[in-house]
Simulated scan of single mutants.
Amino acid sequence: MNFANLSFKQPLLAEDLLTISQDKRPLVTFQFEEYLVMKGKQVNNSLDEAVHLQHPIKIHEAMRYSLLAGGKRVRPILCIASCELVGGDESLAMPMACALEMIHTASLIHDDLPCMDNHDLRRGKPTNHKVFSEETAVLAGDALLSLAFEHIASNTRNISPDRVVRAIAELSTTIGSQGLVAEASLVCGAIVGGGNTADIERVRKYARCIGLLFQVVDDILDVTKSSEELGKTAGKDLVSNKATYPKQMGIDKAKKFASELMIQAVGELAYFDAARGAPLYHLANYIANREN
Score class of each variant (00 low, 15 high):
4 A>F: 05
6 L>E: 01
7 S>L: 15
7 S>D: 14
8 F>R: 09
11 P>Q: 11
13 L>A: 14
13 L>Q: 15
13 L>W: 09
14 A>D: 03
16 D>R: 00
17 L>T: 02
19 T>F: 04
22 Q>C: 06
24 K>V: 01
25 R>K: 15
27 L>S: 09
32 F>W: 12
40 G>P: 07
42 Q>K: 14
44 N>L: 13
44 N>Q: 15
45 N>P: 05
46 S>I: 02
54 Q>Y: 13
55 H>S: 05
55 H>G: 02
56 P>S: 07
57 I>W: 09
63 M>F: 11
64 R>M: 10
65 Y>N: 13
68 L>H: 07
68 L>T: 08
71 G>H: 06
73 R>K: 08
74 V>F: 01
75 R>S: 03
78 L>R: 00
80 I>W: 01
83 C>W: 00
83 C>F: 04
84 E>T: 00
86 V>Q: 07
90 E>S: 14
91 S>F: 13
91 S>H: 14
92 L>C: 12
93 A>M: 01
93 A>E: 03
96 M>F: 15
97 A>T: 00
98 C>P: 06
100 L>G: 07
100 L>R: 04
101 E>H: 00
102 M>R: 09
104 H>P: 08
110 H>S: 02
110 H>T: 03
112 D>Q: 12
112 D>Y: 09
114 P>D: 09
115 C>G: 00
118 N>W: 06
118 N>R: 03
120 D>S: 12
120 D>H: 12
121 L>H: 14
121 L>E: 13
121 L>A: 13
125 K>V: 13
126 P>T: 13
127 T>S: 15
127 T>R: 14
128 N>G: 11
129 H>K: 15
132 F>R: 03
133 S>H: 13
139 L>Q: 10
139 L>H: 11
140 A>P: 03
143 A>P: 03
143 A>R: 04
143 A>V: 04
146 S>G: 11
150 E>K: 08
150 E>V: 11
150 E>I: 10
154 S>G: 12
156 T>S: 12
156 T>M: 08
157 R>A: 09
161 P>M: 12
161 P>K: 13
164 V>L: 12
165 V>P: 09
165 V>Q: 14
166 R>I: 10
167 A>W: 03
167 A>F: 06
172 S>M: 07
175 I>K: 07
176 G>A: 11
180 L>N: 15
185 S>L: 06
194 G>P: 03
197 T>P: 06
197 T>L: 12
198 A>N: 14
199 D>T: 05
205 K>W: 03
207 A>K: 01
207 A>T: 00
211 G>E: 13
212 L>Y: 04
213 L>M: 06
222 D>K: 10
223 V>H: 08
228 E>K: 04
229 E>Y: 01
233 T>D: 15
238 L>Y: 13
239 V>R: 14
249 M>Y: 07
249 M>Q: 04
252 D>I: 10
252 D>F: 07
253 K>T: 11
255 K>G: 00
255 K>N: 04
259 S>N: 05
259 S>K: 05
260 E>A: 05
263 I>M: 05
264 Q>A: 13
267 G>T: 14
267 G>F: 11
267 G>E: 14
273 D>T: 04
282 H>T: 10
282 H>I: 08
284 A>T: 15
285 N>F: 00
285 N>H: 02
286 Y>G: 01
286 Y>S: 02
290 R>F: 05
